[in-house]
Amino acid sequence: MAEKIRKSAKILVFSTEKISDPAIDMAGLLKLHYPPTVYTITLPCSSGIKSRWILHAYEKGFDGVFIAADGSDCVFGESCTEKTGEVVSRTHQLMKQKGIEPARLKMAAICSVCSESFVKQIKSFNEYLLKNTNS
């Protein structure tokens, strides 16, 4: 039996309390729509995300994980960007070992007013995931 074609991919977003979460809030305030199958878990800083959480999400059925990173605006310091990048690199390696397509993990710096950027990134990620998971 053919699998059901989904309208939107299931995406877990790791956002940050001070920087990217306000941008995601503002996207709602501005009624900038994105798929309702995008769920956010908020953390203090994107450089504190563990690879095991990301892998757990794939294991439980998420199509993609999006890290809405603090970037250079991080209140905890400039090293956040580099460290979040390292989290992504390490996780990509683990994903490859487990046969998970690394492109299913995406990171972008989302500043506190980058609502439009967030929505654009999420829509494009959703399209990529749909194309690859429905094909």
Binding site: I24, D25, M26, A27, G28, L29, K31, L32, H33, Y34, P35, P36, T37, Y39, T40
Partner: peptide, 19 residues
């Protein structure tokens, strides 16, 4: 469930409820 749900998905009420 407001900024990250009802407002963001005001174009999809069933989807917003499920979320």
């Amino acid at each position: 469930i407001r900024e990250q749900d009802s407002w963001a998905h005001s174009d999809d009420k069933p989807g917003a409820t499920e979320k």
